[in-house]
Structures are given as C-alpha cells and as structure tokens.
Design a protein around this nucleic acid. Structure first.
Lengths: 211, 211
DNA sequence: TTCGTCATGTAATGGGTTACATGATTAC
DNA sequence: GTAATCATGTAACCCATTACATGACGAA
C-alpha cells in the first residue's frame, strides 16, 4: 500500500492461499518467508487493521466456538497427537477480498524498489503469481543491483587496500564473494525462466527444429 | 546508547580515528562499512545532536573560514588536483570526547544482540579496538546464531519439500548455501583469532617447545 | 550563469519494537 | 494447579525516511 508495505504484501500473499488468523499468520511469515523475518504483534495487528480498513481483507470473527461436539474427554488417553483440528479459542480469521487480490498483484508487479534483499526475497516467494515476463524483469533488476553492489565493493577494496585493517578487508572480501554467489544464483533463476519463455517463441527461432 | 544505536556506534567509531563533519561522516559510513548502508540526513544529524547532548562528542563550529590565505587565483590553472585541503565552507566538525570513547568501547563490547548481520558487520569493522578474547566471544556468538539459522532453514526445507513451489525451494536452498558460506568465513576468522591468542599460552601448552 | 556537489539542518509522517494487559486451553 | 502455548490486542517510545529549506562554492 505505502511505499514499502512489505508486511502488507506478505500478509496478502499468505491469505491468498487460505484464510488465517493473526497468530498463524505470524508463524507462517517466520517459516515460509525464511527464518530471517520475525514480525512482532505490535506490527502485525495494526497492519491487519490497516488492511481491513482499506477493504483488502475481511475479518471473520468467531466468538468462542463452545466446543464443536462436546466430546466428554474420551479416554483414548496417552496418544496426545489424536486431537488435532479442534482448539476452540477466540479467533479472528482473516480472508482476502477481491480488492485485496488486485492490490496484491499490483504490489507484486511494481518493479520499482524491489531491489534490496528483503524485498526481492519476499517477491520471489510469490513468483508463481506473476507472468514469466514480469519475473524476468524483476530478476534482471535484482541482478543489476547486485552487480552495482559488487562494483562498489570492489572499488572500495581497491581504494582501501593496505589502508584498512585485516578485519575490514576480510569483511569486504567476503561481501564480494557473497554477492558473486547471489549473482550466480540469480543467473540460474534467469536461465530457468528463459527456458520457460523460449519454447513458445521457438517456432520463429529459426534453429531448424525437428520438422 | 539505546538498545541498538548502530548509528551511534558507527559514528563514534569513525570519529575515534579522526574528527569529521556530518557530510564526510555520511560518506565514510557508506564506504568503510560497506555499500549496504546509506544513512539519511534526517537520521544522521539528529543522531549527532543526541550524541552531543549526551556529551559523547564535541561540535567544533568553524563559521566560514574566510579563505585561509586569500590566494589571488594563482594561475597554476589546469591542474585542478592541486588545491585539496582548502574548501572553506561552513563546517561543524565533530570530535569524540573521553566519555564518548568509553561509551564506544562499552557498546562495542556488549555481546548481547550483536548477532544479526548488520550488527555483526558493524562491530567487525571496529574489531581492532577489542581484545582478542572479546573478539572470539563475538565471533562465536555470531557462529551460533548462523548455525541456528541454518538448522531452521533445513527444518523448513524438510517440512516444505514438494509442498511449495520451486521458487520458494530455491530461495531456501540458496539461503542454506549462503549461511554455510557465512559460517565458513566466521570459522576462518575464529581460527585466525585463536592463532593470535594461542602463542601467549604456548608456554604451558606442553607441546614440547623449542627449549 | 547555471549546474553539481558540498554542507547543514527541520518537520511531518509512518511504522516498528517493546512492554503491557488479558484470558483461554492444553499438557504435565 | 501450574506452566506453556495459543490468541488478540493497546500504548509509549524511538527513530528512520522523506521532503522541505537554505546557501556557499567550484567548474563548465
């Protein structure tokens, strides 16, 4: 919604798959989007409120389900894994609206500012919702950004070499290596993507197909 | 000063080497600390004010130096690289105070919360100010953090394998590889550090020294 | 003379973190 | 019965980003 709104994008993306309540949402954010992002309650709930107010999600409040079927403590005892789907607490289940769906696509597609690691990572997690061309655009933008970062790193190393201590030097060298790895990875993704796009254009490629 | 105060730490660390004014500080932050961190004015100047108010830095205001020696446009012309140290604009040069120095060391030494990439990176850039034992502690903490992250990544991959799309899978796999690289790098740093510490304890190591 | 860079700030705004507050349910 | 986890929020605080505002200096 706003200039970044990463949280909003993530929430909408997760709710696109299935309706969830806040607590569950937070866990999903911590796993599916990698163990790098832990959202706090004071961040998540206000975000949900914002999204609800904007009409992007609907809150479905279930006021204490009062035990679905009473189940008088069946003495299956020890096997604690049995009762799974129950848990009748107060839950506010959120689900995405058609407007929220459009909003999600819009946020996902905008190529601007999707360059830094976190933005890119987040968008990649929802790449399946994008057409291959947009995917390629985003990948290439990310690649350009990394290349730029790499160049800056190298320039810095050249400039600082023998003027800085070994720690700073090691830091920069590792930065270079890590960035190069990132670029290689992006290149793989780009190659895969092109292989998905090419076959359709193969008819006019002139590479003498089977025929 | 506060719970994170990364900016403060960085500023104090840079000012420890030499006095600087805000503009210069910002550039240094962008290079020496890697091309990953660009501080905005609205962030830097308030931070400088906070530090000054806390007594950690002194502001040395030079109100327009009025051209040091008049220099009636000496016609050395073309060679524009000659006049270097001049540039007489209004500058507010900040320099660190003894209190700021103590504050810096304190912030640098506290091992808590120095685990995430940015904190660690920042501290590493000032490792030369720390005794080897503290360096080792910080390195090992970082290592433990990365190991934990790696474990979570692997657990996620195991759990999600074939349930998620190829992009998410690729994302996690790359995350694993990158984290492993980070760990290897930390291990190198740890080894180097131990080699610095060991020789002193070599006398009681019992490895039959020269003798 | 005009543009780019140097140089220093302020104000508004947004939003994240932390701590606080509450309460139900489950497992031990 | 009590601790852990599930579950949902609010309030205060901090601080970063953005845009705004100003102006001197150097080079073209």
């Amino acid at each position: 919604m706003r200039q970044h709104g990463m949280l909003e994008l993530a929430v909408l993306g997760l709710l696109k798959e299935r309706a969830m309540h806040g607590y569950e949402l937070r866990k999903q954010l911590g796993t599916m989007l990698g163990p790098f992002w832990q959202v706090s309650w004071g961040s998540l709930y206000p975000a949900l409120r914002r999204l609800a107010k904007a009409g992007a999600i609907d809150k479905d409040e279930q006021p204490v389900p009062k035990r679905p079927a009473k189940r008088v403590l069946a003495k299956t005892s020890k096997t604690s894994k049995t009762s799974k789907a129950t848990s009748g607490r107060r839950k506010t289940v959120y689900k995405i609206t058609p407007y929220g769906d459009r909003m999600f696509t819009e946020m996902l597609e905008e190529t601007a500012a999707a360059v830094d690691a976190e933005h890119f990572t987040l968008k990649l997690a929802f790449f399946r919702y994008l057409p291959p061309e947009t995917r390629l655009t985003l990948l290439e933008r990310r690649r350009a950004y990394l290349q730029d970062k790499l160049a800056q790193f190298k320039a810095n190393v050249r400039e600082y070499k023998e003027r800085v201590d070994s720690y700073t030097l090691s830091l920069h060298n590792h930065g270079i290596a890590a960035t190069q790895n990132d670029i290689e990875w992006i290149d793989e993704l780009i190659t895969n993507e092109r292989n998905l796009v090419k076959p359709a254009a193969r008819t006019e490629a002139g590479a003498l197909p089977i025929e």
